[in-house]
Design a protein around this nucleic acid. Sequence first.
DNA 1: CTATTATCCCACTTGTCCGATAGGAGTATT
DNA 2: AATACTCCTATCGGACAAGTGGGATAATAG
Lengths: 145, 145
Amino acid sequence: MLTRKTKYALRALACLARGPQEQWLSVAVIAAREQLPRKFLERILLDLNRSGFVTSRKGREGGYALAAPASAMNVADVVRRMDGPLAPVPCVSITAYRHCTDCGSEAACCIRPVMKRVRDAIADILEHTTIADLAGNPARNKKTK
Amino acid sequence: MLTRKTKYALRALACLARGPQEQWLSVAVIAAREQLPRKFLERILLDLNRSGFVTSRKGREGGYALAAPASAMNVADVVRRMDGPLAPVPCVSITAYRHCTDCGSEAACCIRPVMKRVRDAIADILEHTTIADLAGNPARNKKTK
DNA sequence: CTATTATCCCACTTGTCCGATAGGAGTATT
DNA sequence: AATACTCCTATCGGACAAGTGGGATAATAG
């Protein structure tokens, strides 16, 4: 299950992608447009900033903007940053591989092959879906700073 | 992420599918063979029994056996019982649809279409993978009671 | 009949994470 | 100087994951 944090993050990014190019959007505006809890969204945008998905401007008329073109930003990366690896078991993750502590031998594990296929299927979809796709606006690009 | 509960459940079912047809396997035996915590496995098998995946026999020489042919038991159903719906968001689940509390309009939701595709991809794989596949023994069938 | 061996079942613990809020410090604009 | 933003930390309740302990019940071997 996707956490709300991730859903809100995706909504906020889509909102930025749709928003007017000429100005920064404040947390308050995004929260109002997308109907999201203000304070929680603030925290999420902070994370998105640290992860490099958005840039910010302080003070009056400040706010957030996409750090890259929406069409160059895929959903998989956002989900991974917020929710962690896409893979259903850590030992089939490509970006965050970890040996399963409860599993003796990976070669002999009967669950691994199936979950590998699941991971690949999920990754294939989410990596080929961009924020621009979510925004329903493939042409929209980065805000020129 | 799959919970351990589900992973253990799948391992136990695969173990039963592989095990000798003529006898019931006790929790202790399964735990030893699959290297699983005994008590926890007991609890899991109880759930699997209630959900109808296995049958049990009390007393001496008792234990568990598959309630249906391993080749007729798919992974998706097991995961759903133990971990809940496969869908990344409740509003795209087919077996356990629920309206997302944080979402105003499903028709206008920008996240739903992508997640719908993810759900379908996961379901497609897990529904077409059986316990027999896990056990590496497609011919193995139900224990004749 | 009785001891043994199994499932059944409840309660409890410990830790982690989710979702969210409070409150204040820093900073840019009017 | 006042205002309106972002930034950052701390905290909190509730849920759930992963497991353990102890005992009731039932079936069979001897």
